[in-house]
Design a protein around this nucleic acid. Sequence first.
DNA 1: TCGGCTATTGATCGAATGATCAATATGCGG
DNA 2: CCGCATATTGATCATTCGATCAATAGCCGA
Lengths: 215, 215
Amino acid sequence: MTSTPTAPRTRKSPAERRDEIERAARELALEQGLAALTLRAVAARAGVVPGLVAHYVTGMDDLVAATFSAIVADELAEVHALVRREPAVARRIGALVDTVLHGGRDDVTLVWVQGWALGPANAALAAAVREQMDAWHTMIVELISDGVDAGAFVVDDAHAAAWHLLAMIDGLNAHSLVRWHDAPDRRDMTLRVVAALLGAETAAIASPITTEETA
Amino acid sequence: MTSTPTAPRTRKSPAERRDEIERAARELALEQGLAALTLRAVAARAGVVPGLVAHYVTGMDDLVAATFSAIVADELAEVHALVRREPAVARRIGALVDTVLHGGRDDVTLVWVQGWALGPANAALAAAVREQMDAWHTMIVELISDGVDAGAFVVDDAHAAAWHLLAMIDGLNAHSLVRWHDAPDRRDMTLRVVAALLGAETAAIASPITTEETA
DNA sequence: TCGGCTATTGATCGAATGATCAATATGCGG
DNA sequence: CCGCATATTGATCATTCGATCAATAGCCGA
């Protein structure tokens, strides 16, 4: 019955400790969802006493909201960078679709879905969700505008089209969270639909590399 | 400090009482979401002591799952009936889109989103979610197949197309839960995209009645 | 009319949550 | 090397949750 060798209390700079706590919260949310962000769970993850977490945070609601923002903002930056690697402006939309379909981002998707679900009970989180949705929307509008400028897309209202595309992405992601990524030809179909949304040819928005065909 | 006039204990048939409890749960879930389905909250709503609810239920997880199923199955039946009122088979898809876009079903949408979000922590709920998604999928497959048979749609894989359409619907709904239904021309755009998905003319899948144009 | 079956109550348990605070000890500045 | 500002601890509170159970009382049948 050796008591858990109490780690000697270490004193760190507030900034550093705050960082550790925020990182612990982020990891925990990615592994188990936003609902797992408990005062005690975060503390344990950070190797610290619950009271200390409370000391560094306005309230758990705020920590949840901040963690949501951090995770989702990271995702957006990552996707943004990935998409920009495609030199042909019009095909960046296709790259976006590919990333979303094969991204293996179920952890982030769970965070999104929980953000929507917990919003009504957490005003700060709700605001964060709207903010991040706006950020995604802004990126997609940019992608679409570039395509229009390049003469590849014909879009009346890029604003509205971007919302529609984002809704499609979110819906597909939410489904892949529940259903085992079944449909083998989601890519082709999605590309065709997106092309229609943007008034473009399917071949114009994506590289012709077809998904691996399972015989 | 008059004690709340304790209502005289009334004894009802198990079936009736069970009904009341299930109805209370359903109402509560529609008003405040699945997360509000507390032993005590449901009991209060049903005008009954918490212990009684526990007596009639295997566990709260099961009640949550059952309530989810009841609400969503009702929604499906309602939408199904609504869609069937459109005599032209091909245009039933358009009717579906209209219902989803103007349905005012945010309460049910919240239940859906919470179903996805709570699934990882509630196996029974997760199973119910998959079951109801399958039910929706089945209905949409039927709609698509009818259109194909009528020669209005050209679809390789109705199965996959149905999943895609459902994902789109869910995404649009989830968004309308968070964002104030802004886009005025969502209908036209959605119809165009769905037409592309089904290999049909936009005019073929929906009655030409355009949504009210806000000058 | 009345007894008994059982629906219903009220009280209570144990676990988990967010939050607060006095006491402690750590590491930096002088 | 030492003293002090404060980061950190440990203990504790008030809530809320799901769940259990003996005791009570309503209603149906005899």
